[in-house]
Design a protein around this nucleic acid. Sequence first.
DNA 1: TTACTGACCTTTT
DNA 2: AAAAAGGCCAGTA
Length: 110
Amino acid sequence: MLIPSDFTQKIINIIKKIPEGKVLTYGFIAKLAGNPRAARQVSWILHSSSKKYNLPWHRVISSMGKISLKSIEDCEYQKNLLEQEGIKFIDGFNLDLKEYLWKINSIEEM
DNA sequence: TTACTGACCTTTT
DNA sequence: AAAAAGGCCAGTA
């Protein structure tokens, strides 16, 4: 596909606008993009598009406020980036979602 | 080309 | 209450 699907663009659009010091969860992004159950694709789009579009992939975490990367190195790298933005980790790779989740009701508000 | 996998979340047994 | 399975799309082989 030359042109990404609609919600792929929305997802990219959303991620690009995440402010520093804030994070979003996969499910939340999927929901904003119009598909509450497409959380899985968010990760993939993120993975492939972060290189091409230079997206802040480190500001996207799992719904439990936890980093869920495969490689330990990437986890630590992401943790490091988030800490540089003022985000404090509770323990290990867990952070407080109530405090750092980007509050937004819909993409129309952007 | 078709088929399978992948940084997950939600709903149903 | 915990556990299992379904769902969604794009990228890679």
